[in-house]
Design a protein around this nucleic acid. Structure first.
Lengths: 193, 193
DNA sequence: ATATATACTTCAGGAGATTAAGTATATATG
DNA sequence: CATATATACTTAATCTCCTGAAGTATATAT
């Protein structure tokens, strides 16, 4: 009688394996682990190490996102009215909040802002790299993205997307105000609400 | 000399923990595991069990998606010029592509669209639920989101965010064209490019 | 100098994951 | 029918994760 285990995905792995017509041995061989380990994992007898789980997921072509999908349960719509949104004012930059945490304690997977950058303004002196991914679209104005040692010029209507883990800086290089929508995943939680 | 470990996320956990000002002891106590385990995980000395990893990720409010992100990642900026973007035309709906896959074979974690919905138009007859999360902001017009059996009314400037796994439908309920930016994670790959 | 406190690391031993060998059941084959 | 082969599950030994206590490091106080 153990079952201290909390997150069970054994059934999912088994289902996929069987649908693909693999045997325990097949998977075990490819993953360089024992047949019995696969058996126990599929029956939720053990909580495998992350290494082994990813290995097995890889072999069966299972997105781990799917394995954990019943673990992340956030089923709320969070609406933020334009009149209620917060903003952070800096010298040349205004960041308007566009997303809020859902009601539950769980966090949303995206966070969005409306960026307004005045002439010669910038989001930060080569902001430190951080995890995740960013997406942006230029609503008005001319922008330059400095990314590592590369530079990208963007005009109205252009959109872009990149991993955030390389230092980056977003600048207004035109004469009018630069407006852009910015979406970050995972959330950085600039607004606590 | 062990180091059979393949996927290292220790640094990420440590970085987040420190940014949040938690000590090893704080996290250990909340997760009901030992301080030394946290220390070893953060220094990649062990590959923790899935149970423990999820527990710790929860406490630090880290999306596991992020922990595994260099496992499925790419590091390219992909820019899409407004003149080059594709669009899907339906009777009352136009979907303009705002993001593209990076050069590498790995997929980006977000996909973005500019939605234009004509009077009385809708994105789909209660579109089937699918995994992930969506974020939207209304640029122009009046909208209604049907979500499960709930309904949300949205006006210009309002933004919203919700998990996609419940059937949902997005409708124009005003007299002019509804324009909205829509971000989906993970990508649905409407545009193949 | 010594004490006290906080944050983290190391190490030996115990708990739990993983292996190798053995059991069980089914289907085939001569 | 015997026995051979294939798949999945169990058991006992082994290895890795994990714990608890002791140790290092740095800071602040007395």
């Amino acid at each position: 009688m153990k079952s201290k285990m909390k997150y069970k995905f054994g059934e999912k792995i088994r289902a996929v394996r069987e649908r693909k017509g693999y045997t325990l041995k097949d998977v075990a061989k490819k993953a360089h682990v024992s047949e019995s380990l696969i058996s126990q994992i599929e029956r939720n007898k053990v909580s495998p190490s992350v290494d082994n789980l990813l290995l097995i997921a890889d072999i069966l072509d299972i997105d781990y996102e799917y394995l954990f999908s019943n673990y992340r349960q956030k089923r709320m719509v969070s609406v933020l009215k334009s009149s209620e949104r917060g903003s952070i004012q800096k010298e040349k930059v205004v960041i308007h909040q566009l997303s809020i945490d859902g009601g539950s304690s769980k966090e949303p997977e995206v966070e969005a802002f409306l960026l307004e950058i005045k002439k010669n303004g910038t989001t930060g002196d080569q902001e430190y790299g951080h995890p995740g991914r960013e997406f942006g679209i230029i609503l008005e104005g001319e922008a330059e993205l400095l990314y590592g040692n590369e530079s990208y010029i963007l005009s109205e209507g252009d959109s872009l997307s990149f991993p955030s883990d390389i230092p980056h800086e977003f600048k207004n290089r035109g004469n009018k105000v630069l407006k852009a929508i910015w979406v970050v995943t995972p959330p950085r939680r600039l607004f606590k609400n």
